[in-house]
């Protein structure tokens, strides 16, 4: 490589590094906001889970169609990916898990809803039938989208087109760690979270059944919201980590190229000096002769 080539390489890596550093900072800021949203969503979700557990226990599985387990094996999988890449193994993790789940259930028995461009593109490339898709809203996720998606999913379930609805998404463990997890959304599983106080001595207005019927759809929305927030936080965490690594790699490359550059420059100067010295020597010799 000539000196100019090396200089050009260095400049190019530097501008790449500027981009990766900026992306890292943006991801870090978005991650903070996403984590804040998770914290803000927690009180509602926790109380909701407690109320549902208490009332569902009273009502039993027959208490509401959203609680009723059905014998059929038709499963609807909702895969939540990111809209964008450049976030390490974030998307491939969840997509691989989704593919495994779908294959295990058999194509005929499983249907698929994709959230996020990456999931859509992945299954489209494999010409896997996609029942519904939602893309391009994750970056400005509002609760209206949650309501719409939840209503669609509950509609499909209540119309008995499917017997189970599962969510598959990346759970946010820490900034650097996400894990693909699958949670059953429908029918609602009200195990766990035993109510802290016995609910028998409550007065209900209008009635336990009516409250439960109003509660369950909100609970489903809450679960979906949580899954999307987790995935969002995970995405930003993954992107931050990936861009951090990319920035570091760029730095190393710049350092290596700079050393090459200095070496090449020194070599050239040495060569020029030798040429001059050699030339001068030759002149002196011919003058002396």
């Amino acid at each position: 490589m000539t000196l100019r080539d090396i200089r050009r390489r260095i400049r190019s890596v530097q501008s790449t590094q500027k981009i990766t550093r900026a992306m890292k900072l943006v991801a870090a800021a978005k991650l903070r906001r996403a984590q804040e949203r998770i914290l803000q969503a927690r009180p509602y979700a926790a109380k909701m889970a407690e109320l549902v557990a208490g009332l569902a226990l009273r009502a039993g599985e027959e208490g509401h169609p959203l609680l009723a387990r059905r014998a059929g094996g038709r499963r609807l999988l909702v895969v939540i990916s990111a809209d964008k890449g450049l976030c390490g193994a974030f998307n491939s993790n969840v997509l691989r898990a989704a593919l495994a789940f779908l294959r295990e259930g058999g194509e005929a028995e499983s249907s698929l809803v994709v959230v996020g461009r990456k999931a859509r593109d992945f299954f489209r490339r494999r010409s896997w039938p996609i029942r519904a898709q939602r893309v391009g809203f994750l970056d400005r996720l509002g609760f209206e989208e949650i309501r719409e998606i939840a209503a669609e999913l509950m509609g499909v379930y209540l119309a008995e087109e499917v017997d189970e609805v599962h969510l598959l998404y990346n759970e946010f463990r820490s900034v650097a760690v996400q894990r693909a997890v699958r949670r059953q959304l429908l029918p609602i599983q009200s195990e766990g979270a035993a109510p802290e106080a016995p609910t028998a001595d409550y007065l209900y207005e209008p009635s336990p059944g009516a409250i439960l019927a109003a509660l369950l759809p909100r609970h489903v929305e809450g679960q979906l919201y949580r899954a999307l927030l987790e995935s969002l936080a995970g995405e930003y965490g993954a992107r931050m980590t990936a861009m951090e690594a990319a920035t570091k790699n760029a730095q190393e490359m710049i350092e290596r190229l700079t050393i090459d550059y200095n070496k090449a420059r020194q070599e050239r100067i040495t060569k020029e000096l030798l040429d001059i010295v050699g030339g001068a020597e030759a002149l002196r010799k011919s003058a002396a002769a």
Binding site: Y44, A45, Y225
Partner: peptide
């Protein structure tokens, strides 16, 4: 009193 919505406390 605690008043929460799905998105915030």
């Amino acid at each position: 009193l605690e008043l929460a919505t799905p998105t915030r406390l």
